[in-house]
Computed example of a mutant assay.
Amino acid sequence: MTSLGTLEDLPQSYRDKLTELNLVPLWPNMRAVLPHKVPSRKTQTLNWHFNDLRPLLIEAGDLTPMEKAERRVLVLANPGHGLTNMQATPSIYMGLQLILPGETAPNHRHTPNAVRIIIEGEGATTIVDGEPCVMERGDLILTPSGKWHEHQHEGDGPIIWLDILDLPLIYQLEGSWAIEGKAQNQTLKRDKSFAEYSAAGVVPELGFQRENTDSPMLRYPWAKTRDCLVEMAKHYPNSPLRIAYVNPENGASLFPSIGFGAMMLRPNETLSLPKRTTACVFHIVEGQGALSVDTNNVIQWTEKDTLSAPGYTEIILWNESSTEPAFIITADEAPLHRYLGIF
């Protein structure tokens, strides 16, 4: 590899002239932004253990009332990107959100796309443009860019979910903003997307990408997804059990920026994922096991944990139970990489 000139090779007077005109020489930084063969990666392999985080989230409920928070969230920040940047991967934000009984997270809308994965609790509803979406464990609930949404909790005990947004991407594009709105008092009498699309929304993960519009299905019930994976296991005893969440009307990913999927690991099963360009996050719905990245970075996981792993790596997952399957929801930047032609 050719050794390029450094900034120190240039006379100070020349460097001062460049600075005055807001100029920077490329060649001293060429290898940093265009490394050979494999990109530089800031995403670290990490597990946010739910049992460690839950007490702090509950304490936040005591320390900060809803009217002082708007959204009571602890951000899952990957230290490789800097904690203040609120990134789990280059373009994915994640946070654990808490609502207590009787509370409402007020109505607003914003430019980033968002998905909620329900972790704990019952009796809460997300209202999206007037459509009530019941929040049950493992469900995916969509609040696409620009849609009004609020969260109401009329049950007992706290409800906790995982927020996944393309906020870092939209923020870096200088397009991130929100608008507050009035409470959505007039709502539909049913969960429309569940009633009309309750048997749709998941397909085998084929790696295709079609033209994307907002999915008409806002709630993807975990019970349906789990049943699909269990049924697949009966017919494909030797194949990986993975599905993709898609728009039921056109087969496109839920968002053009983030793709979502789910997988099932049979008892004692080890699964080596295809090596891919995109970083990935894993939310454990059921089970316990381990994840390794490039064979030398092994971390344990159990249900309700959330993990991250960088792209361009060999990722292996295994289920440590000899009797029970494990179920995992995934999120990655594959739709964005495909659109950009770098997948």
Rank of each mutant, 00 (worst) to 15 (best):
residue 119 I to T: 09
residue 268 N to E: 14
residue 165 L to A: 04
residue 158 P to Y: 05
residue 67 E to R: 14
residue 208 F to I: 08
residue 340 L to W: 08
residue 219 R to W: 01
residue 6 T to S: 15
residue 108 H to K: 11
residue 82 G to C: 06
residue 245 Y to E: 01
residue 310 P to A: 00
residue 8 E to H: 13
residue 337 H to E: 06
residue 156 D to R: 10
residue 220 Y to N: 04
residue 277 T to C: 08
residue 293 V to I: 14
residue 28 P to A: 12
residue 125 T to I: 11
residue 224 K to S: 10
residue 339 Y to I: 08
residue 230 V to P: 00
residue 292 S to R: 12
residue 52 D to T: 14
residue 250 N to A: 02
residue 202 V to N: 02
residue 186 Q to H: 10
residue 220 Y to K: 00
residue 79 P to N: 07
residue 307 L to C: 10
residue 165 L to F: 15
residue 25 P to H: 10
residue 190 R to C: 00
residue 29 N to I: 08
residue 173 L to P: 01
residue 145 S to K: 06
residue 133 C to T: 06
residue 74 L to I: 15
residue 178 A to F: 12
residue 156 D to P: 00
residue 176 S to M: 14
residue 310 P to D: 01
residue 39 P to S: 03
residue 260 F to G: 00
residue 247 N to H: 11
residue 255 F to A: 05
residue 11 P to E: 15
residue 213 T to I: 13
residue 117 I to H: 08
residue 267 P to D: 09
residue 241 L to T: 02
residue 109 R to K: 12
residue 219 R to I: 03
residue 71 R to F: 07
residue 244 A to H: 04
residue 103 E to R: 06
residue 45 T to D: 03
residue 312 Y to Q: 06
residue 2 T to P: 13
residue 32 A to M: 08
residue 334 A to H: 12
residue 222 W to Y: 08
residue 85 N to P: 02
residue 62 D to A: 12
residue 14 Y to S: 14
residue 124 A to Y: 01
residue 282 F to S: 04
residue 140 L to M: 13
residue 308 S to A: 13
residue 312 Y to R: 06
residue 88 A to I: 03
residue 42 K to E: 11
residue 139 D to L: 07
residue 150 E to W: 08
residue 323 T to P: 01
residue 285 V to T: 07
residue 270 T to L: 10
residue 208 F to M: 11
residue 292 S to V: 06
residue 22 N to H: 15
residue 302 T to V: 10
residue 89 T to W: 05
residue 242 R to W: 00
residue 233 A to F: 09
residue 41 R to Y: 01
residue 321 S to N: 09
residue 204 P to E: 02
residue 107 N to E: 06
residue 29 N to D: 14
residue 202 V to H: 05
residue 263 M to F: 03
residue 104 T to Q: 13
residue 20 E to D: 13
residue 40 S to F: 13
residue 61 G to D: 10
residue 5 G to Y: 10
residue 98 L to D: 07
residue 246 V to F: 01
residue 312 Y to T: 05
residue 6 T to E: 14
residue 329 I to L: 15
residue 343 F to W: 12
residue 95 G to F: 00
residue 140 L to D: 04
residue 236 Y to E: 10
residue 151 H to E: 00
residue 336 L to N: 05
residue 194 F to Y: 13
residue 217 M to W: 05
residue 292 S to T: 15
residue 105 A to R: 03
residue 6 T to D: 14
residue 251 G to D: 07
residue 296 N to T: 15
residue 9 D to S: 15
residue 221 P to F: 09
residue 233 A to W: 08
residue 51 N to M: 05
residue 226 R to H: 03
residue 299 I to R: 13
residue 192 K to T: 12
residue 146 G to Q: 09
residue 99 I to M: 10
residue 56 L to G: 14
residue 199 A to E: 15
residue 25 P to G: 12
residue 36 H to D: 10
residue 287 G to A: 01
residue 222 W to C: 00
residue 196 E to G: 01
residue 234 K to A: 08
residue 298 V to Y: 07
residue 82 G to M: 07
residue 149 H to V: 02
residue 329 I to A: 11
residue 87 Q to T: 07
residue 3 S to D: 07
residue 273 L to E: 11
